[in-house]
Design a protein around this nucleic acid. Structure first.
Lengths: 201, 201
DNA sequence: TAAGGACATGTACTTAGGGACACGTGGAAT
DNA sequence: ATTCCACGTGTCCCTAAGTACATGTCCTTA
């Protein structure tokens, strides 16, 4: 349940409304931890109920800004100190790659080109943020420095994926010219013996 | 709903039971797309209902092996051909990094060391699979080649994250000596004006 | 002054994910 | 003979995530 801690972490930087937090999630945390506003408002209520945040101020359009409490601050810190990190990297791009052999060579090439472009552009975008931060455009608070570290992760991951997509385009000749995809597919549908052992571990 | 397509993709390689598929998801697809057996069995029923798979054979302990149908095969192919790829990379590791400024310098250093080690080890493990495949240990079917491409993604992503964690350890001096973490936290709790504009986009 | 868009908060509903529980079988080793 | 373990399939329930819907306000611009 990292949304809870994401919200607390953002509120540790200063008071913010649900709307603010939704925007920050979309803009900054979105790529690594998506969250829509309904979830955020719901979680804020829960956090307020648990005494981890409290209403800091009320603004124009029913705006409610929340402030983190000592309890809330202790909770984020506890979460950060606790070592159990979930290391799964859900990636549909990589999931798809397991099944590239089912694609037509042309479609695959086109797909990889698109993926490469997307990842390269995203990496480039992250680099411009990093450059702005390094120039000091956002000040040099500790929060900004952490953000810089997070952006560096984005740069490296997206660049790695861009490189991967580029590299994969050099492989397809081998993938493509092994035979028609339908051979294997026919084999799959044929009533063969029950098992083949799982391949990779 | 990629679980559905993951299952269809695996079944395109040949008939398999829910148990087999659960194992393959855990062993091969786990890091990029986790799925537990209850979800898998449920989804298999749904797929069978939709005529995308059918029972291929029954084995010893009530074992049911499924086979993909032409409808099912068409559906995976449709999914693969359709361009809408969800590019979010849910990563708790990176999410946490946004909040590194809330951690004590020592704990942070230790955390980063652990992360680096984990990612490096995972990358190394992926490399041994890649090497085995390159030696031809798993044959050279098209499926194996796709798997090799997927493994390459794992290698590069995990290596990127390992490098990132290592790099991050060289930054902390700056993160650490900017001031006591509690200053900012105190500021967060202080009843200041409602807003500061969201920083990064 | 009318209209459009950003601001702002929520509810309702549906699906996905994950853990706990439940049950039974076949084979291998003690 | 018994015991243990891997095999094998499922249900139940709670939480998380995501989409659609609903409502209203303030400000700017045509």
């Amino acid at each position: 349940m990292s949304l809870r801690h994401g919200l607390l972490g953002l509120l540790a930087e200063g008071p913010a409304s649900g709307y603010d937090l939704a925007r920050r999630f979309e803009e900054a945390l979105g790529p690594v931890w998506p969250a829509q506003h309904p979830k955020i408002y719901a979680e804020l209520s829960r956090l307020a109920g648990a005494g981890m945040i409290e209403v800091d101020s009320r603004g124009p359009r029913g705006r409610k800004a929340y402030r983190i409490t000592d309890t809330g601050l202790a909770e984020v810190r506890r979460w950060l100190a606790e070592g159990d990190v979930d290391h799964t990297l859900r990636s549909e791009s990589v999931l798809r790659s397991f099944f590239f052999w089912l694609m037509e060579p042309d479609a695959l090439r086109e797909h990889l080109r698109r993926e490469q472009r997307f990842f390269a552009e995203t990496a480039a975008l992250a680099r411009t943020y990093a450059a702005a931060k390094d120039r000091g455009d956002f000040g040099d608070s500790m929060q900004t420095k952490s953000m810089r570290v997070a952006v560096e992760a984005a740069i490296r991951m997206y660049q790695a994926l861009a490189d991967w997509a580029e590299w994969a385009q050099t492989v397809p000749p081998a993938v493509a010219d092994t035979g028609r995809p339908d051979e294997a597919a026919d084999a799959a549908r044929a009533p063969t013996g029950p098992d083949e052992p799982a391949a990779a571990g």
